[in-house]
Design a protein around this nucleic acid. Structure first.
Length: 140
DNA sequence: GCCAACGTTGGC
DNA sequence: GCCAACGTTGGC
């Protein structure tokens, strides 16, 4: 199973907003970047991802599950853009901050650390395991 | 609020 | 097809 990371500004769409959507989930719309879109096209139902708060918080705060494969983004008529639906699975016991990731040599290759501007990114199996450990949750 | 990184656009 | 200009994102 593949792992991913979704970035969001909490003032626009926060973890709490995501949790309120429950098991139905919500489409991850508004992506207007080819790399981010291409990553979403690779996702499969059941894949897990981290939910990351950018800007003031800069921390992974929860785990989400892909619950619908890519489909047209309902917020645009432009056929280039599509998106997946995700639903909240569980919060981290303790948020894993960007500073923590940068401080951990094992995470030196993380896209989060190296490409700050990519909003939807892949996470390797090892990175997933380490961040779960740091966040105090079992590796699902 | 500033600035670095980087993706996109458009002129040539 | 190249590259300069510009816009956006996100860390600090």
């Amino acid at each position: 199973m593949a792992h991913w990371l979704f970035k969001s500004e909490p003032s626009t769409w926060s973890w709490d907003d995501q949790v309120e959507k429950g098991d139905t989930g919500e489409e991850w719309d508004g992506v207007r970047n080819y790399q981010a879109r291409n990553n979403m096209r690779l996702m499969q139902i059941g894949d897990l991802g981290f939910f990351y708060h950018s800007q003031s918080e800069k921390a992974v705060v929860g785990i989400v599950e892909i619950c619908a494969p890519t489909h047209p983004d309902s917020t645009t008529d432009d056929p280039r853009w599509d998106c997946v639906d995700i639903r909240a699975v569980r919060p981290l016991a303790q948020p894993v901050t960007l500073a923590m990731c940068k401080a951990d040599a094992r995470l030196a290759g993380m896209v989060l650390v190296n490409n700050t501007r990519l909003s939807v990114q892949p996470v390797s199996d090892e990175e997933w395991r380490i961040v779960c450990e740091l966040g105090g949750v079992p590796v699902a």
